[in-house]
């Protein structure tokens, strides 16, 4: 009986370690393929993508985990600005285009073109260059 328990316990342990290894390998390969642009992937970082969507949809909560830490006052001011912006519909995004990017070591840069219409009805066409490191957007130009 003890032998059978040990066999089942050992087998479950092996299976669990295998599942964890498979999950981690799959995740790492996915990130590598996405970032390198292999197999038709754009090379766009999911972090940069999420940041841009959060920015254009004026949703600071969506990007709070992927940008450098801010003080409580800065976060409150940002939420206030986003609420006001949403309430007045002051900007209307017209397009979001991932142009391309590159990386050196643990730093990668991702460039976007944004077309939006402001409160005065004027179309603005400009770009963002996001630097990503350690799973966060550390710089926005």
């Amino acid at each position: 009986m003890v032998g059978l328990r040990r066999l089942i316990g050992g087998s479950a342990g092996t299976l669990l370690v295998g599942v964890l290894a498979g999950f981690v390998i799959s995740s790492a390969v996915g990130v590598f393929i996405q970032d390198s642009g292999l197999f038709g992937a754009s090379g766009e970082s999911p972090i940069a993508h999420a940041y841009m969507l959060g920015y254009l949809q004026r949703d600071p909560n969506a990007i709070v985990g992927i940008r450098p830490n801010q003080s409580i006052a800065q976060r409150a001011a940002e939420l206030q600005g986003a609420d006001a912006s949403r309430a007045t519909a002051s900007i209307q995004p017209l397009s979001l285009t991932y142009i391309g990017g590159g990386s050196v070591g643990s730093y990668s840069v991702h460039i976007y073109a944004v077309d939006l219409r402001n409160a005065q009805g004027v179309d603005q066409f400009f770009s963002f260059a996001l630097t990503v490191a350690g799973g966060k957007v550390i710089r926005r130009e």
């Binding site: 087998s11 092996t14 299976l15 669990l16 370690v17 295998g18 599942v19 964890l20 290894a21 498979g22 999950f23 981690v24 390998i25 799959s26 995740s27 996915g30 766009e44 999911p46 993508h49 999420a50 969507l53 254009l56 949809q57 995004p93 017209l94 397009s95 979001l96 285009t97 991932y98 142009i99 073109a113 077309d115």
Partner: peptide, 30 residues
């Protein structure tokens, strides 16, 4: 058993990892 576990991990990852949200805005041609 370990190999089956790895396969299970890959399948689990495929189920749980939905990837980034779709871009709701149109993209311009290069």
């Amino acid at each position: 058993l370990f190999a089956v576990g790895i396969l299970g991990g890959v399948v689990l990852h495929a189920f749980l990892e939905k990837g980034p949200a779709e871009n709701p805005f149109p993209a311009l041609p290069k």
